[in-house]
Computed example of a mutant assay.
Amino acid sequence: MSGKWAMRNPAVKRIMQELREMEKEDSPDILAEAIEEDIFEWHFVIRGAWDSEFEGGIYHGRILMPADYPFKPPAFVMLTPSGRFETGVKICLSISSHHPESWQPSWSVRSALVALIAFMQTPGSGALGSLDHPEDVRRQMAAESRTRPPSYGNKDRQALIDAMHQRMLGMEDRSRQLCKAEQQQDAGPEAAAAEGGAPQAAPEAAAEAEAASVGGAAAEEQPADEAVPEPAAVPAAAAAAAAVAASPPAAAVQPSSPAQPAAAPTPTVAPVPAAAPPAAAELRQRPAAAATAAAGAQPGSPPAPQAVAAVPLGAPAVVAAGPHQSWEDRGLTYLAVLLVLCIAALLIRKVMLAVSLNNQDLYSFNHVEGVEL
């Protein structure tokens, strides 16, 4: 076929594109070239994974492209014994011609060869062209595959096989280094956490111990008659204001007086008149108890959380809610009664209109009949 016709063929265009990409490929574990007289037949070489029983093995094979590639998958034939795939047989894989339903046109020869290296480490499970040799046999075959390339085809093909075998041997050191770098990168965070965890924990523990010692010394140096710290005084003042709003006038003057100290107890706020209902007594005792607890707390103790929560739940909201709810109920009742009256008036009006119309029709009918007689 002429070169001009070849460039019009979509399969040829795709194969030529992948050939250019494989020439730029820098992976030391994959090589692939097309046969000079037929670009639909490729020869490839892959290296066994270093962390498997195929460690260091150099495996040769053939790729047979279909005429409508890449819409149909290629076929793979292994030439080097590996203990995983048979030689001289089209192997059955999800990327091979045995399973065209799973093939994607976006896949390439390179991606198929990467998948083939991964498939070598999976069990054969009785698939066509698959083997399940023991691990020691596979290791022995991997060592033998490095010593000599397989024999296949004419002199030109054998020369290509030998040249690609030597190239794979020359890239062996770089492949080992890349494998070690990938292993260190994968295990880097875990190794760093295992090795550096203890040294990092020690400074943190020392810092916490130092902070605790500084805080203890400051607490010892503080005089006994020192006033309550400023953060604790804010909840105490809020609780005192709530107590003033909920307690009787005589008792409310004591916590708001500036002459008394902030820590003075307010026992007169707690009593509740006997006539008050239980709900109102509970609401009044809540802010008074919070104010007493905040005022009687020691200088180093944290403020009680009930004092802050008791301020928005004071008695004024409950007192104002009673009349408001009763007026709403009355207004709704009046509105409902008014609507009922309006509806009743409309119904009565309709009934009256209907009765008057019936009477008029009856009169007109009798009148006409009398005239005819």
Rank of each mutant, 00 (worst) to 15 (best):
Q285T: 15
P303T: 11
A297I: 05
V311M: 06
A288N: 03
P302A: 11
V308R: 06
A291I: 01
R284V: 15
L283R: 04
Q285L: 14
A309R: 06
P305N: 12
A297T: 09
L283D: 07
P303N: 12
A310D: 13
R284M: 14
A307C: 10
Q298K: 13
T292I: 05
P299L: 15
A307V: 13
A293H: 03
A281V: 08
P303Y: 06
A288R: 00
A294I: 09
A309P: 00
A307E: 11
P287V: 13
A280Q: 08
L313P: 01
P278C: 12
R284A: 14
E282F: 12
A309S: 11
P312F: 02
P302T: 12
G300V: 07
E282K: 15
R284L: 13
A289M: 02
P278Y: 08
A315S: 09
V308F: 09
R286V: 01
A291V: 01
A291G: 01
R286N: 09
A293G: 10
R286W: 03
V308K: 04
R284Y: 07
A295F: 02
A279W: 04
A310K: 02
V319R: 04
V311L: 12
A281L: 03
G300Y: 10
G296Q: 06
P278E: 12
R284C: 15
A295M: 11
G314K: 00
S301Y: 04
A320R: 09
Q285F: 12
Q298E: 09
P299K: 15
A315Q: 07
A294C: 12
A280E: 09
A289W: 02
P312D: 01
S301K: 15
A310I: 03
A280Y: 05
P302C: 08
E282N: 08
A309Q: 10
V308Q: 13
P278D: 06
A315V: 14
G314M: 04
P302V: 14
Q306T: 14
Q285M: 09
P312I: 05
V318T: 11
A281H: 02
G314V: 01
A290R: 00
A309I: 12
A297L: 13
